Simulated scan of single mutants.
Amino acid sequence: GFSSSSPWPGLRTLVPVLAAMALIATRGTLAQQTLAQPPLVAVGLISYPLYLWHFPLIAFTRLHVGGAPPAWIMLAVLALSAVLAWLTYRFIERPIRFGAVPLGWRVGPLLAGMAALIPLGVAATSTHGLPIRFAPEIRGFMLSGTETSSHWRRGRCLLLLQPASAFGADCAGQGGRPLLLIWGDSYGAALYPGLLHFSKPRGYDVAQYTASACPPLIGYTLEARPFCKSINDDVVLRIGRLRPDVVILDATWGHAEAVLREGLPRTVAQLRANGIARIVLMGPPPSWEGVGLSHNVLDYYRQTGSVLPERTLFRSNDAWTRGRDALFRELTRELGIDYISVRDVFCNDEGCLSRIGPGGSQLTAFDPGHLTVPGAIFLVDHTLDDLLRPAGQPSQ
């Protein structure tokens, strides 16, 4: 009943807790006799240091490899964790717990060590991971993601595990015209700061109705996001009431082709039935392998001693993006809606833009695909005239 998509913590948390309580309470049973066997007792003795060691070792391994490590590496890491756990138990835990040193002399150094870690923890948290540990040339590219997601209006206009009733009143915009409405998932939320940046000088308003992992496809369902279908049904009703001048469909677009070919026509038909004259589908942005663009900058620097080029194919998924681009050109042409190729803005045959801005000081994405705020502004700057043109007028 558990998977990577299971909400945690929650009521499911009671299952292992109650199971542990039952094991403790039921002495003399077969389960107790089994757990009393010497090999399992040995595992129990090192279980807590094993718990402490395995996580940082796995985390550092994943960071070093740049994604999911091969199985043999993970097995080696777990074996190393077990060895370190036994050494910790034998030479640290046992002497502290059962040694001849008086209790006060054992507790004092432990408390002093804990106290010394407090300012280090505060510094690491307040600086998003002690960026001083990175070389000055790449320090500004080590993004945590909060620099971007703080602009998405998470939990209000980008719903997480929430029903449609959680949309805030301000998601509908400020009542201005023309109104550009973004409908999509977190990639649509990443577009919002770019559209907002130009809204006042260019004289338009922006509405945002987005939900994590929920593409703007009528009828779409996802077990990990139980509200996707009802959210999309609700957004269609809101669109019918707001009558935006442009509806922008924006998502990761990593879904199966069959899902897109079934869901897009149904969605477009529903929007047209609500009187929407202009529908624009934003294509997928550049995609990067591994943990994301920040890690690629770090890894490239480790390998070459240089900053990742502004335009590059290093760990780029551009072949996939090109394939999706071709598919959406076909689908939008068949449906008679407008298509904006985000790839055409960021990529050419020499590679995709990883850095933009003055001196290439800003990353275009902070993870495998979500645009940063500068990346969204860059995209909107290159596509806004096309977004604002009247329905029926050909693109420039």
Results as ranks from 00 to 15, higher is better:
115 A>N: 06
218 I>H: 07
339 Y>G: 14
221 T>I: 14
133 R>V: 13
16 P>Y: 02
165 S>L: 05
117 L>D: 10
369 G>Y: 05
301 Y>D: 03
89 Y>N: 02
74 M>F: 08
144 S>A: 15
145 G>F: 02
299 D>R: 04
91 F>M: 02
360 G>M: 09
123 A>R: 02
272 R>V: 06
109 P>W: 00
382 H>N: 14
178 P>D: 00
92 I>E: 00
236 V>P: 12
64 H>T: 11
304 T>H: 05
19 A>L: 01
100 A>Q: 04
340 I>K: 02
42 A>T: 01
36 A>N: 06
263 G>I: 10
50 L>D: 04
182 I>N: 02
361 S>F: 04
294 S>E: 01
42 A>F: 02
278 R>W: 06
190 A>F: 02
198 F>C: 13
36 A>K: 03
195 L>I: 00
202 R>V: 10
228 C>A: 03
245 D>R: 12
90 R>T: 08
137 E>D: 03
324 R>E: 11
206 V>Y: 01
358 P>K: 05
150 S>A: 15
371 L>M: 07
95 P>L: 00
394 P>Q: 12
142 M>N: 10
301 Y>H: 15
301 Y>L: 15
244 P>W: 00
242 L>N: 09
232 N>H: 13
121 G>H: 02
93 E>I: 13
37 Q>Y: 08
47 S>C: 06
186 S>K: 13
297 V>G: 09
129 G>H: 14
129 G>R: 09
241 R>N: 07
13 T>Q: 11
252 T>D: 11
178 P>M: 01
34 T>I: 01
41 V>G: 07
48 Y>S: 15
391 A>Y: 11
139 R>I: 03
68 A>D: 15
185 D>K: 09
33 Q>M: 03
341 S>L: 07
2 F>M: 12
378 F>S: 04
166 A>R: 13
330 E>K: 15
385 D>M: 07
201 P>F: 05
64 H>G: 08
273 A>C: 10
330 E>T: 14
52 L>G: 10
185 D>W: 07
170 D>M: 06
307 V>G: 00
250 D>L: 11
233 D>M: 01
36 A>R: 04
218 I>N: 06
391 A>W: 08
313 L>H: 13
240 G>C: 04
67 G>N: 11
320 W>A: 12
136 P>Q: 05
389 R>W: 07
233 D>G: 10
305 G>F: 03
328 F>P: 03
135 A>W: 10
344 D>S: 11
298 L>Y: 14
55 F>K: 14
272 R>S: 06
281 L>C: 11
180 L>H: 04
26 T>V: 13
329 R>K: 15
106 R>G: 08
91 F>H: 02
49 P>E: 02
247 V>D: 08
311 R>P: 01
271 L>S: 07
323 G>L: 06
100 A>Y: 06
268 V>Q: 13
322 R>S: 07
207 A>N: 03
186 S>E: 00
342 V>L: 14
120 L>I: 09
376 A>W: 04
340 I>F: 05
241 R>S: 04
304 T>N: 04
80 L>T: 00
377 I>A: 12
